[in-house]
Design a protein around this nucleic acid. Sequence first.
DNA 1: GCGACAG
DNA 2: ATCTTGTCGC
Length: 219
Amino acid sequence: MQVRRLHPWPSSVAEAESIQDRLRGHVELTGPTEFALVAGLDVHYHGDDAVTAAVVVLDGGTLAPVEQVVAEGRVAFPYVPGLFAFRELPTLIDALERLTVTPDLLVCDGYGLAHPRGFGLACHLGVLTGLPALGVGKTPFIGTHEPPGPERGAWTPIAHEGATVGRALRTQRGVKPVYVSQGHRISLDTATGQVLRLAARFRLPEPIRHADHLARHPS
DNA sequence: GCGACAG
DNA sequence: ATCTTGTCGC
């Protein structure tokens, strides 16, 4: 599939932040509610600055694997909270461009709207591809929230500066919640429903687990 | 003001 | 992210 280059690569924190501030205006918060093909994305770090990006496409109904690709690259930016996306974006884009099918939903490892400037990795990937995208975080980042109830499916809103930017979602009984936020072309209800459905067996959604495994053990 | 801060 | 043992639960 094709990915759009909507901006030059930033060479400073200020440039990176201004790119986020500009692209934020392109995010759409409504979209489809069903997805024929869902893709999970993840990056594995090794050595000083080497990264392996993996994208795994699953059948949206059966969750059977349809296609998987990996790309090797280098960390493209220093780690700065809020600018995390710039580290792995180039390698993730390389991997996406090797896909022979176009997914209908990107399930990203990180945040979307629940981000200091409202433009996390999931928003960035969504806008560059034009595809619906959502973010799944494993630890709280911004905003405040109450712990959700212990049962699978329980959730509480994540509030930040007077707005709801995501949800803490319990995907398995008695297991730490995950943090769901919108990336692009998806509602918060749909994002929550998809993550819950894709995480029927484990804490993390199946596409992210597959991508994580592939990035660690490239075939 | 200072520290903490997705992966 | 990654460096790492043992322990608990399914």
